[in-house]
Computed example of a mutant assay.
Amino acid sequence: MSINDKLKELGITLPPVSTPAAAYVPFVRTGNLVFLSGHIARKDGKPWVGQLGKTMGTEEGKQAARGIAIELMGTLQAAVGNLDNVKRIVKVMSLVNSAPDFTEHHLVTNGASELLGQVFGDKGAHARSAFGVAQIPLGACVEIELIAEV
């Protein structure tokens, strides 16, 4: 099954690449690697503002991370032309806007990791880091970046 067929099966339509909010590009391809800039969580087209452990819970954060994975796949598709050209999702790095006592960053990030696994199968298994941070641009609850091999 192609990646596009899998996305259709899951009811997912990939968005176009977002315009960067600062002085950077959405992706850089070098050799057989594609580096995607961090994407922040969005809800109804606006930054999904919140702080895990203070104004929102783990499940809501997980949904935000899942939404970011969809946006990342849209950017990745723009970078490589067709997601079937992806040999492997190599690395995911997740920044979670969290209260000092919040410790479920890994569970929030699963929202993205699990969807990448559903879409890419074995090629979606990746190395990962998940960090708690004091703040993310525009007050977003989660930001995720990705590295893929093509």
Rank of each mutant, 00 (worst) to 15 (best):
A65F: 04
L116R: 07
F27G: 10
T58E: 12
G50P: 04
G38K: 07
A65I: 03
G67P: 01
H105T: 08
I68Y: 10
A64R: 01
I40V: 14
P47A: 09
N82C: 01
R29I: 09
E59Y: 10
M73W: 01
K91V: 06
A21K: 12
T103N: 10
A23H: 13
G74L: 06
V28H: 06
T13I: 14
A112I: 02
A79M: 08
I70N: 11
G45W: 07
R42T: 14
E104C: 12
G61E: 05
G45A: 06
G45F: 10
P16Y: 00
V108W: 12
Q51V: 15
G111D: 11
M73P: 04
G38M: 08
V119K: 11
D44V: 12
W48H: 13
G67S: 04
P15Y: 00
T30W: 03
A23S: 15
K91H: 15
M93G: 14
L95Y: 05
L14M: 07
K43C: 03
V96H: 15
G117C: 09
F120R: 03
L10P: 07
I70Q: 10
A41S: 12
G57P: 03
L36W: 04
H39C: 05
I89H: 10
G11F: 08
L76G: 08
I40C: 05
V119E: 04
W48E: 14
V86N: 04
M56C: 09
T109I: 08
G61D: 09
E114Y: 02
L52M: 15
P20Q: 05
E114M: 07
G111H: 06
G74P: 07
S18H: 00
P20L: 03
V34E: 13
V34S: 09
P47G: 06
V25T: 15
L14H: 02
T58N: 08
R29W: 00
K91E: 13
D101R: 10
I89R: 01
V34K: 05
K46M: 10
A112H: 07
A78F: 05
T103S: 12
L10T: 11
L83E: 09
F102V: 05
A79L: 06
M93C: 12
I89G: 06
L36C: 10
D84R: 07
G121Y: 00
N85K: 13
L95G: 10
R42V: 11
T58G: 08
A112M: 07
K43D: 06
A23W: 14
L107G: 02
G67Q: 01
G53H: 02
I40Q: 13
L115V: 12
V25L: 14
E59K: 11
S18I: 01
G38E: 14
S37V: 04
H39K: 02
A78M: 02
L115H: 03
S18C: 00
T19D: 13
G67V: 03
L14I: 01
R66Y: 04
M73G: 08
A41V: 02
R29K: 13
R88T: 07
L36M: 10
G57E: 11
L33H: 10
V17H: 00
I12Q: 08
F102E: 10
L116A: 12
V17I: 05
R42G: 04
V28C: 02
T13W: 06
